[in-house]
């Protein structure tokens, strides 16, 4: 049965009444209109749906809404400050990190989480984290370039 769940999204308190086992991804996209977070597989395999939960990167498709009660979620929409892009977004823009761009929000959020956790991570470590993400356009060389640009900022 439906329950009422409150959580913070991009700094705003949200309250939804819904089935507790609905994926966070669906609630963000359908109930809150935040369609920047993408569905790619629904089973934790592509990471297109990556958002920050308490600062950590999670796959929103396999995160049940009940588990985010009273927690802080950040999505791609909450990254830029007005017209100023987050440095990682800027790096993806400068590094041609998008072909179709469907994987971009997930990749960007993952990288933001990595950089939040340690400001100077080793490149190999970063690539290992991003290694969970799929880009079907196989834009990996430009993605590596964008990642390197992010690490330099």
């Amino acid at each position: 049965m439906d329950t009422t769940i409150s959580f913070e999204v991009n700094g705003e308190l949200k309250t939804v009444t819904t089935h507790p086992s609905r994926p966070l991804l669906d609630v963000l996209r359908e109930d809150l209109g935040l369609t920047g977070t993408k569905y790619g597989c629904g089973e934790g395999q592509c990471r297109a749906c990556t958002v920050l939960l308490e600062g950590k990167a999670v796959a929103a498709c396999v995160t049940q809404i009940a588990t985010v009660e009273n927690k802080k979620v950040r999505t791609i929409e909450g990254l830029a400050g007005g017209d100023t892009l987050h440095p990682v977004q800027q790096a993806f823009l400068d590094g041609a990190g998008s072909q179709c761009g469907y994987c971009t929000p997930g990749m960007v959020m993952e990288l933001v989480a990595v950089l939040n956790a340690s400001p100077n991570p080793a490149e190999a470590e970063v690539l290992a984290r991003l290694g969970r993400h799929l880009c079907r356009c196989c834009n990996y060389p430009n993605l590596k370039r964008s990642i390197r640009l992010s690490l330099r900022r």
Binding site: R29, E30, G33, L34, T35, G36, T37, K38, Y39, T75, I76, E77, L79, A80, L85, Q89, Q90, F92, L93, A96, G97, S98, G101, Y102, T104, P105, V108
Partner: peptide
């Protein structure tokens, strides 16, 4: 020439076909 809509791709603002929403819409 970089993608003309590249900014919308990195901000999540671009609406892909699976992102489209209309008032009263059902899934």
């Amino acid at each position: 020439t970089p993608r003309p809509n590249r900014r919308d791709l990195v901000t999540g603002a671009h609406r892909f076909p699976s992102d489209l929403v209309r008032p009263g819409m059902l899934y």
